[in-house]
Design a binder for these strands. Structure first.
Lengths: 232, 232
DNA sequence: ACAAAAGTGTTCACACTACACCCATGG
DNA sequence: CCATGGGTGTAGTGTGAACACTTTTGT
């Protein structure tokens, strides 16, 4: 019987990074928070934000730390995308990266942070070339996001509580990159019965004004229990 | 401007393992290849098979190596499930694991290998408690497998080329753990038109015998191009 | 008054479900 | 001849897609 030391010893160790694909919703378009790489090699090129995992951190903890550093928000919705471990993926050294996507409330975003880190919100339609395999990470994150969003009500994490139906539809259209029929969209939402209509209107994006809605957790549970399944 | 050395230096490094959830189909049930953990701590307990990633290996390469070691098969269909990085997940040391699921052709499996590694094919219905977070890995792998199998024709990797429709249905039922209507199943397959019927019968599981079919890659491409989407 | 966005129903096609009987063969 | 598993069609239901006009209000 081997003992632990023989088994774990003399094995290669690796730098492990957590890279975050931070999604935000702005100007009816999906945006990603990108930064300029602060070190050589590839200094100054567009990059996802990331950080190395510390000795006493889980992958999730490391990712949360990165997110907090760049956004000062806590309780951000986050999900693991994949691990990336090609030998030469990082031109600066052997690094294994675990990618997470995150959904942030962009209205709350402190623009001074953008200055500090030379970070910008880039429309996903205008995605530049990124360092290493970061473009692949974004692609994978988008694929996963599209799937998740159609199955679970995670999309409300983009909003600070309340939202209007036109805005919600714009968001879905931005994520799927395809137009959605207004009537079908609202009909489906109505039949799910997971939202509460507020009696306040949002009046700055139209003259008439659109009613605010909020997501109702209880109704969502009832919807799940009902056995009906719609996908948005 | 920081240079690379300052950035990458003095960061924690980690053991990284590739753990494999090896699925096989036998006796109308889905099975997983499990082994007895060969080292302390938790010596002799049920475990997935895994191995540490080497200096010049990608995660995929490491997983392929593990798969080859235990099955002697090459070209095994494999897909990454997730990375697992809780600080205390491995009671023997800090290890970050990347899980992969694999689909193997169980008919080709060399049972002498099972002896050598103290490995066994366990019915997923009778899954024992596994070491560390391996049960969670299996759960995640199953969820992913179920999704993938319904969307893409990866299920044929369980067979050595040809298969009968009853066997294919049994396999789907084993994966989903729910009965499927025979006529609906066959009707859907027929409308997809991605299989070729051979004029040979498999005669050992019934008196009448069931026709063999093979997956036709070209037809599958045509099916994709047609824009029709069925999910199995 | 008019421009601009919010809001609202109906019809049609098609995929999914449920369901029962005959066929071929080995023993 | 009978037991065992292989093979086949139809009708109903519900979700997804297409489609146009009225309402509200600020300018």
């Amino acid at each position: 019987m081997l003992i632990s030391e023989q088994y774990y010893l003399n094995k290669s160790k690796f730098l492990v990074a957590a890279d975050c694909i931070v999604f935000g919703f702005k100007d009816k378009e999906l945006h990603i928070l990108l930064t300029r790489r602060p070190v050589q090699p590839q200094y100054g090129e567009w990059s996802l934000m990331g950080g190395f995992v510390g000795e006493n951190e889980s992958l999730e903890t490391a990712a949360k730390k990165v997110l907090f550093e760049y956004t000062q928000q806590r309780g951000i919705y986050m999900e693991q995308v994949n691990a990336y471990g090609e030998v030469d993926r990082d031109t600066g050294g052997r690094v294994i990266s675990v990618a997470f996507y995150a959904l942030v409330r962009l209205e709350e975003f402190d623009t001074s942070l953008a200055q500090k880190f030379d970070a910008r919100w880039i429309n996903i339609k205008d995605l530049p070339q990124l360092v290493f395999d970061h473009n692949k990470m974004v692609e994978d994150a988008l694929t996963l996001l599209r799937f998740k969003v159609s199955m679970q009500p995670i999309i409300f994490n983009f909003f600070d509580g309340k939202f209007t139906l036109p805005a919600l539809q714009d968001l879905y259209e931005a994520i799927y990159q395809r137009p959605i029929d207004k009537r079908n969209f609202r009909k489906k939402l109505a039949s799910m019965d997971i939202l509460d209509k507020l009696h306040i209107k949002e009046t700055f994006s139209s003259k008439r004004g659109a009613f605010y809605y909020i997501f109702n957790e209880e109704k969502y549970k009832a919807y799940l229990a009902s056995g009906k399944y719609y996908s948005l």
